[in-house]
């Protein structure tokens, strides 16, 4: 992924030392605490971790959807090679209500959320909602926008698209609603699609349909995908690269093969050993990760995983290891590899 200096190999999105904190009465929640990531063109990046690790807040920070106050991006850079503006923009420095940010949000970076029922407006038809998204970013008439909406419904393989256009969200099944969300997100040809647990609320057979669809669409419209999930099966089948997050930090980053077959960080290893894998014949004993995730309000000094790590050393409790490139393209933050 690194190496050649042609413009195409430059990452489309680069996040450097991003920190998003929430300032609450009870204290400061360091939800994202020094995240480094890069996203290449036409690739899928899987962002995995357990609840509370900051994966969704990272996505919301990229979209600049964090409520301020109580939240705030306190430091770091979110560098987007913008197609519309023809330059590299630091989204972290933009005003979240500015014209530029509004053009990027939904136009260049679109997002699909976990719960398709709550992210669709129950009072408007499917067609109206997709058309609205189109008209926000493109100067077209309502009629043209509705045509575009129909085109998108065909693209996401919804049966009887003309009829669905006039229907309301409650008339659709969960899988269809998620297809509508994807249609809406892709209606403005974004260069980055952020999918936050897009299939978690769905049944496995429907999940498989949605994943197939996303894979197909990625080839058709050549956009990059950031796939946020806790499901290691989904990541292994969808992502080219994987970033493993723990307590607001990326602890390991590499190709999907690196992460699944040559994992370095004890947390990644622990995560893979604690999940039952279908078809691993013979009842393999699950090795759980002991203990619980510390509160993000009170993160201990040193490595965030130190309190649960089976290979912890005195140093781990004092200084946090930097994320560094152990092998080409395979990054890890752990004192074991110093």
């Amino acid at each position: 992924m690194n190496g050649t200096s042609t413009t195409d190999s430059l990452p489309l999105l680069e996040i450097k030392d991003l920190r998003t904190y929430f300032f609450l009465e009870k204290g400061t929640v360091r939800a994202v605490d020094g995240v480094n990531l890069s996203l290449q063109r036409k690739t899928t990046l899987g962002l995995v971790g357990e609840s509370g690790c900051g994966k969704s807040i990272t996505a919301m920070s990229i979209m600049r959807l964090i409520q301020e106050p109580p939240g705030k991006i306190v430091s770091g850079e979110i560098l987007l090679r913008s197609r519309t503006f023809g330059q590299v923009l630091d989204l972290a420095k933009l005003d979240r209500h500015s014209q530029t940010m509004r053009a990027i949000r939904g136009g260049e970076i679109a997002m699909v959320f976990q719960e398709p029922m709550t992210s669709l407006n129950p009072l408007y038809t499917i067609g109206d909602q997709i058309a609205e998204a189109v008209q926000l970013h493109q100067k077209v008439s309502k009629k043209e926008a509705l045509e575009r909406a129909l085109e998108m419904l065909v693209k996401v393989q919804i049966a009887m698209p003309k009829q669905r256009l006039r229907e309301y969200p409650h008339q659709l099944s969960g899988g269809m609603r998620q297809r509508v969300m994807i249609a809406m997100a892709l209606s403005c040809n974004p260069s980055i699609l952020i999918a936050d647990e897009p299939t978690t609320a769905l049944d496995v057979t429907v999940q498989a349909q949605i994943l197939d669809l996303m894979r197909q669409l990625q080839e058709d419209i050549d956009s990059s995908i950031i796939m946020i999930t806790h499901n290691l099966g989904v990541v292994s089948q969808m992502a080219h690269f994987v970033a493993v997050m723990y307590l607001g930090k990326v602890v390991e980053y590499g190709t999907t093969n690196d992460i699944f077959h040559r994992s370095l960080h004890p947390y990644t290893v622990g995560l893979l050993n604690s999940v039952p894998v279908l078809g691993r014949k013979g009842k393999k004993v699950l090795v759980p990760i002991e203990g619980i995730v510390p509160s993000p309000m009170n993160i201990p000094p040193g490595c965030p995983f130190a309190s649960r790590c089976p290979k912890v050393m005195p140093k781990c409790r004092e200084v946090n290891p930097e994320l560094q490139e152990k092998e080409s393209g395979h990054w890890v933050s752990c004192w074991l590899y110093e």
Binding site: A208, Q209, D212, G233, Q237, F260, V277
Partner: peptide, 17 residues
């Protein structure tokens, strides 16, 4: 066939419903 295996080397042979 719809369950994604947590191993990138195993490719899914999904039977669409």
């Amino acid at each position: 066939s719809a369950i994604p295996p947590a191993d990138p080397d195993i490719k899914m042979h999904r039977i669409p419903l």
